[in-house]
Design a protein around this nucleic acid. Structure first.
Lengths: 335, 335
DNA sequence: CCTCAATCTTGAAACGATTCATTGTTACGA
DNA sequence: TCGTAACAATGAATCGTTTCAAGATTGAGG
């Protein structure tokens, strides 16, 4: 059984196709008697409007593309959810693409989205990729960078000030009297890691006598954090840092597990601990974790807003929004 | 600047539109000299095929709809990722909708997907909803239920045998000598919770002298688990269960935190602990958690396969695939 | 040089909706 | 009864592709 078209409805109701279209889009233009007859036919035939045809005529879709680095990461899944909600309010849907840090997959999704004539693309790019994205905008598809500041103000962007986040985390450790600070870093090519470190360095520089050590973790995972923690536990007590700032919560939780498992070191008495991201597990860890919260919901909504802005006034200059993160103090720094 | 159409390319290359279309879809039908000329024009004009028009002609899209209960839940985000990968291999894209356990939003996405003429819908339904879904299939949109067995074999479905998972978790506790078993339950209207409990009951019934107690948690979260754990710690030692099976890993981790925090109860010596889902945090918990692993990747891929199957032979009867979960033994049960 | 087959290319029809200028209808005041 | 304004309904054109029957071109064999 082929699905009923607007023409079938028109025949069934004994009106012209234009009238059916009006019933769907401008019901007030149609006399109520006719409208009811058409609506009855729609119900009887089980007619469902073909959005593809509508889009062809309209020249653009009601869809927004979103490319994220890793949908398994709570940061991105939360962001995606917020974007989806915000888009839905405007009658749009979000198509999700997961690049998994792979430039090839990222390109694949950009191509796909352009062929689908999405209204715009929200993207957390794997690397600087502005040629392809510039081509997109040149052909009329709007682009908003997410969690990645736009170099040169070429595109609109939403990001969080990671330098400032690193600064406030470290300053908090200094404020509660810690002086031997260590930063647990992930891979340095992630700009987030580099920025948080640079914020930490700034805070330490402001306090005479404070020192900053960098401990390198292989990855941004719980396991990598345990590795760092295990190494710390072996150290002579006098060489231990008394304040630890980790590049993200997963690392922090791993470190926490190592330190608390053997009951030799107490958190926060011996070592105060700060994480980053404020994932759900931070609040409910063995020792509730002080963390830097990123406003994921706000980021997602704002990205949609910036896109909408560009769609409504296509000539307007791109705009960049940078959010300040927020420190959430919990027991791991003495609350 | 309007984006170039196939007609613009045809003019520019001095050929007919049909030829350009052939270059795009059946390059071998076109003489190589012509083909190269057309490809040069495509490159020069920056032509990008309009998939909307293509879909209109084809009568269906290259898109598959996926509606999940909660994209923030690692189970679903992992599943979504797998489905997306599998779909991409077949040249299709997955559009994600997040119902958030809300029937209204679920309906919204079903409507949207039908208007967009997706090839099919993969859905983890909020509740029994077969009328709307039956209407979908009646109009030719295929449906595959995910993580929810199809009653009456009306639709194809992929699910995991939760009864069997509950059975194997509990049997493992019994096998290591535990007799006073407790099941930490979440809301009973989730069929997953009910099924896991019923498996646990079956295992306990097989061992004379073994008992099963049900501890009710308000929610399937870490916090709810801590609540249950805190209540347990207060109990008289002789009334404590010696084996705990939790409806999911979040609950188990919460319970673990309560029990270990005060160092009064040891895991697994005093209480052995089993979770469900085998999320990433299970392996790296303070005490690595024994858990029942669900093959999320397999579920996602299989859902796409079942859909493909139905698309290729539309008259074939729906098929249901039920996976057996797998017990992963770790330190929390003595490994 | 002609024929025939093989190979390429053409261009109009179709997909299903929206748009809008045009035509048809109604009703009311003069 | 007529003129006209206000309101409804019409239907052809359009969006950008794909499809496919028909026409054009090429080359080999006689």
């Amino acid at each position: 059984m082929r699905t009923a078209s607007i023409k079938d409805v028109a025949n069934h109701a004994g009106v012209a196709v234009g009238t059916v279209s009006n019933v769907l889009n401008y019901p007030e233009r149609v006399a109520s008697k006719t409208r009811e007859r058409v609506q009855a036919s729609i119900a009887e035939l089980g007619f469902v409007r073909n959005d593809v045809a509508r889009q062809l005529r309209a020249g653009h879709s009601r869809t927004i593309g979103l490319v994220v680095l890793d949908i398994g990461n709570p940061f991105f899944s939360s962001l995606a959810r917020a974007a989806e909600d915000a888009a839905a309010e405007g009658g749009n849907a979000v198509v999700l693409g997961n690049s998994g840090h792979d430039a090839g997959r990222e390109l694949h999704y950009i191509d796909l989205f352009e062929e689908q004539r999405v209204q715009g693309v929200l993207i957390s790019p794997v690397a600087e990729n502005s040629k392809r994205l510039a081509a997109l905008t040149a052909r009329g598809t709007k682009v908003v960078l997410v969690d990645s500041p736009s170099s040169e103000d070429e595109f609109s962007s939403v990001s969080v000030d990671d330098v400032s986040g690193g600064y406030m985390a470290t300053k908090h450790l200094l404020d509660i009297g810690r002086r031997r600070i260590a930063f647990v870093a992930g891979p340095q090519q992630f700009h987030q890691v580099a920025d948080r470190l640079s914020g930490a360095m700034r805070a330490v520089a402001e306090v005479p006598g404070a020192t900053l050590e960098v401990l390198q973790a292989a990855d941004l995972t719980v396991l990598a954090g345990r590795g760092v923690g295990d190494a710390l536990v072996e150290r002579e007590r006098s060489l231990l840092p008394d304040g630890l700032f980790c590049a993200n919560d997963l690392l922090a939780l791993g470190v926490m597990q190592s330190l608390t498992m053997l009951h030799t070191l107490r958190i926060p008495e011996d070592v105060a601990l700060v994480g980053y991201d404020d994932i759900d597990f931070a609040a409910s860890a063995v020792v509730p974790l002080t963390s830097v919260r990123q406003p994921t919901t706000l980021i997602g909504r704002t990205a949609i807003e910036l896109l909408t802005e560009q769609l409504e006034s296509p000539s307007a200059a791109p705009r960049s929004v940078v959010f300040k993160p927020e420190l959430v103090v919990r027991a791991s720094t003495g609350s």
